[in-house]
């Protein structure tokens, strides 16, 4: 696997985490838990954005593996 593919895999895992946290935040009945899930979701979102830029960078560097 190329670095680009690895980073892409990680990026999609991060997206998965973000979505799961969103589901949990909506499902939980407890305010404190909901708050915690939403806060962590925000952190994950920032990581996701950084990774997304990296994925684009890498696909420019390795156009043949796109």
């Amino acid at each position: 696997m190329t670095v680009g593919a690895q980073v892409k895999g990680c990026y999609s895992s991060i997206k998965n985490i973000e979505a799961s946290l969103g589901i949990l935040a909506n499902k939980t009945q407890d305010k404190e838990s909901k708050q915690a899930f939403e806060n962590v979701e925000q952190i994950i979102k920032q990581i996701k954005n950084d990774l997304q830029k990296q994925v684009i960078e890498l696909s420019k560097e390795e156009p043949q593996y796109k």
Binding site: L24, S33, F37, V40, I43, Q46, I47, D50, Q54, E57
Partner: peptide, 23 residues
């Protein structure tokens, strides 16, 4: 530059894991 970005985000994620583990 990438190194720094990965490092920053890995720390961020570790922080997120620590916060969410009890839940």
């Amino acid at each position: 530059q990438s190194k720094e970005m990965y490092d920053k985000n890995s720390k961020k994620l570790q922080n997120a894991i620590d916060r969410i583990t009890p839940y």
